[in-house]
């Protein structure tokens, strides 16, 4: 063909084939999506602290290991109540003239997804300890430590946020660890990362490939230890001893071993912030939609571990307490 011997024709053809396909598969869909998606009704812009925190998140390349997208498949269920939709990202605009839009969806999940971390782990103290040295709260973590976001002082000044780090995790520092402004901003950002519920009665699109999950429900037995590892261990620790000055121990706890089942279940479902010496506990059970079966397994695991010797509970007892609590909170 003569075209193949004419460089103008040949390269122009190749160029326009590529540009044409580019417009069809990238440019037009991108424009359509950015023009035609609106934020959900309840969506709020990030607070100023959180906006600064997001810049810290971007600067340190957290997206290299943490995704922010809940895919519509059953295996992503732990990361959010519903699959992500275009509206979730519609609030995100270009960072500034120099830097591109940061949806931070990510392509690697070396660490957990953070779409809903603000609901899953709202405790500021936990995040600060974790940022200073992740190994303090999650022994198996391989996350980088960020001690340079903190300062070590001889004594804390008024207004300083002191971070209680056990001696073994302080890199030999002996002074008082105080959170720097960037650490606080980053935590503010993480606390605001929450999946918004869909408005009114709009049903969420389903999680696909849910066959495996259903089987587990029908199977009957729920692994209390796995539930503990996933939802409780980062604060109360695998040895049940918690972290002094941050998270209370469950080992030998009067609530765990005692007879006030209603209080126990209430804490699991709705969180707890009655003791000033410890951080606030999020409503883990409500966040994760625990069933009575799961709550029972969890209580029985905690009551029989680390030398605890509490009375085992049955599903019926928990169910009764759960409906009572729901009634109470419902009337509130």
């Amino acid at each position: 063909m003569s075209m193949f011997n004419n460089h103008r024709q040949l390269f122009t053809t190749a160029f326009f084939l590529f540009v044409g396909l580019t417009v069809v598969v990238a440019v037009l869909p991108a424009i359509y999506n950015q023009e035609n998606n609106r934020p959900l009704p309840g969506a709020k812009a990030l607070s100023e602290a959180a906006r600064q925190g997001k810049l810290v998140y971007i600067a340190n390349g957290c997206v290299g290991c943490h995704t922010q997208q809940v895919r519509n498949i059953a295996m992503d269920r732990p990361w959010g109540d519903r699959p992500g939709i275009p509206a979730d990202y519609a609030t995100i605009r270009r960072t500034d003239a120099w830097r591109n839009t940061a949806t931070l969806m990510g392509t690697e999940r070396t660490g957990p997804d953070l779409t809903n971390i603000g609901n899953r782990q709202p405790a500021r103290d936990w995040h600060l300890v974790h940022l200073y040295n992740p190994r303090t709260v999650v022994a198996a973590s391989i996350m980088p430590a960020y001690p340079w976001l903190f300062t070590v002082k001889d004594s804390a000044a008024p207004g300083d946020i002191v971070v209680n780090v056990p001696a073994a995790f302080r890199y030999g520092e002996t002074g008082t660890v105080v959170a720097g402004p960037e650490a606080l901003q980053l935590v503010a950002y993480l606390q605001e990362l929450k999946q918004l519920p869909l408005p009114g009665s709009t049903p969420a699109s389903p999680f696909l490939y849910a066959a495996a999950e259903k089987k587990a429900d029908a199977g009957g037995s729920v692994d209390g230890k796995a539930l503990f590892t996933t939802n409780c261990q980062t604060c109360h620790q695998a040895n049940g001893e918690g972290l002094p000055g941050a998270f209370p121990p469950l080992k030998g706890s009067s609530i765990v071993n005692g007879d006030d089942l209603q209080l126990y279940v209430d804490i699991i479902m709705h969180g707890y912030d009655a003791r000033p010496e410890f951080g606030a506990m999020p409503p883990v059970g409500t966040n994760m939609n625990f069933t009575e079966k799961e709550v029972t397994a969890l209580i029985n695991y905690e009551r029989s571990s680390w030398g605890n010797n509490g009375k085992p509970v049955t599903e019926e007892e928990v169910k009764k307490v759960l409906s009572f609590i729901q009634l109470k909170t419902g009337t509130k």
Binding site: A26, V27, P29, A30, I31, N33, Q34, N37, P86, Y89, A90, T91, I92, R93, R94, N100, T101, A102, T103, M105
Partner: peptide, 10 residues
Amino acid sequence: WQNGLGETIV
């Protein structure tokens, strides 16, 4: 350009 999901597609 590239606000919201536009960024992801690009």
